[in-house]
């Protein structure tokens, strides 16, 4: 049985007549990486937000593991887990580190359920993997773009989510940084053993990273790999 199962998903914004996308279905195995590519404005980010729980679906269902994250028939939601209960990590396009906290505090943000020493261990673990040791006590604006991206990734990974969503992780990065991030993602995802979906508009960026690639175009999904 696949880990993530999306069936006939439809979404539309409250004020628009046409749906953002409809009849989207896909499945994903555990520990694998999926890339969703497609031109901008087609609804890729919206799809991620639906999975994360920030948008309500109009039709279809999303199932993660054994639980339904949300289920809807003809615009009436029968199940809708709030985002904080879905255990899904997100890394938005602009890293979005909390400006009033240091890098290590950012990473520790989602670990409030652990006790102090467990928290410290986990944070140190991630800082090492992401090579953030030098800037662990700096604030976001004091670090470089690449460091911020890695920190955001570490923050999302810290609570060991079931699913990780990355929105345009390679945007705003030069080639060298892209390669850098590639490697990090590879290591991190393998080490953490985490199911990942990333959204990007460039296929080239994810050829080597993703096991599966789908394209979201004209409100439909085409499997490319």
């Amino acid at each position: 049985m696949s880990y993530l199962e999306i069936k006939k998903l439809q979404h539309s914004y409250p004020k628009s007549e046409e749906p953002t996308f409809s009849n989207i279905s896909l499945t994903l195995d555990k520990n694998s990486t999926l890339a969703i590519i497609g031109p901008s404005g087609e609804g890729k980010s919206t799809l991620l937000r639906c999975i994360a729980g920030f948008e309500n679906i109009q039709d279809g269902s999303i199932q993660l593991g054994e639980n339904y994250l949300c289920k809807s028939t003809n615009s009436s939601l029968s199940t809708n887990l709030p985002p904080e209960q879905r255990n899904i990590g997100i890394v938005p396009q602009n890293s979005c580190l909390f400006p009033h906290l240091t890098i290590s505090e950012n990473i520790a943000f989602g670990l409030f359920k652990l006790n102090k020493s467990e928290r410290e261990t986990r944070v140190n673990e991630l800082i090492e993997v992401m090579q953030l040791t030098k800037c662990r006590n700096s604030y976001a604006h004091e670090t470089s773009g690449g460091q911020q991206q890695r920190a955001a990734l570490a923050r999302a990974l810290a609570p060991k989510p079931k699913l990780l969503l990355l929105d345009e992780p390679f945007a705003n990065l030069d080639n060298e940084l892209k390669t850098h991030l590639h490697d990090f993602l590879n290591t991190a995802l393998k080490q953490e053993g985490i199911t990942t979906i990333m959204v990007t508009h460039s296929q080239r960026d994810v050829e080597k990273l993703a096991k599966h690639i789908v394209e979201l175009k004209d409100k439909k999904m085409n499997i490319l790999k």
Binding site: P83, E84, F98, G110, F112, R155, A156, P159
Partner: peptide
Amino acid sequence: NQFDCSRSLGL
């Protein structure tokens, strides 16, 4: 986005 990040982290 910051708000959403926080919620995705379990808050």
